[in-house]
Write a protein that binds this DNA or RNA. Sequence first.
DNA 1: GACTTGTACTAGTGAAACTATAACAATAGG
DNA 2: CCTATTGTTATAGTTTCACTAGTACAAGTC
Lengths: 117, 117
Amino acid sequence: MLLKVDAGSTTPLFEQLAASVRSEVGRGAVKAGERLPAARDVAESLDVNLHTVLRAYQLLRDEGLVDLRRGRGAVITDRAVQYEPLSLAIPELVAEAKKLGLSSSALVALVREEYNS
Amino acid sequence: MLLKVDAGSTTPLFEQLAASVRSEVGRGAVKAGERLPAARDVAESLDVNLHTVLRAYQLLRDEGLVDLRRGRGAVITDRAVQYEPLSLAIPELVAEAKKLGLSSSALVALVREEYNS
DNA sequence: GACTTGTACTAGTGAAACTATAACAATAGG
DNA sequence: CCTATTGTTATAGTTTCACTAGTACAAGTC
């Protein structure tokens, strides 16, 4: 379970953390029923605030990807399997976008625009 | 040329504007050589500041999607054609993601994560 | 019962987006 | 040439939000 963060990036830390978890789930590196590391541990090892990590966890909970319970931590839900089909389509799209010279933010904006239309 | 903005959204207005333009280009609604509406006009009709619109235009210029010249405005470059292949792949991906119940931000985060990995 | 872990609250800091004005410079078009 | 158009630049103020910090609390685990 490798959670990482780029302090230089413009995208918020809590979103980076959430994205990192989703990515691990999408890769199949973490499966339903497994636990994420405790928020306090992540906070310490990445040198970010506890609240920042919890915010990421809560975001994932709102998406239904994890269950949060005190004393037990963040547990991946069954819904994790849903991410697998995308782990094929997304790399293809990204590869094509890169070939065309599109920046990350441009591609992301196109996707978001399509989603909201 | 329909530019729109959602004041309630968390994504910056200038990015929404840029995304809106990219989307129009991707759809083929605007072609190379055509002009975008003047920044002042967009600012007034959408009730946002001139600088906010210009920031969006400058972002698109940095991506190579438009040329900016005083007195003439923002003109779509030849590069616009590059966006067309994506206008096929993106709707597919978004449709699949919606079917799986993924939120916009979750999908976007997965794409961004893949891009940076 | 002790420990772990998420929840909640309050408060402060810094960065970034957005707005508001105004003056300026290149281009287009009559 | 002259004028209107349109992007460029500068300055400054406001607001929002991410992030940090510290503390206390509650529901689980073992």
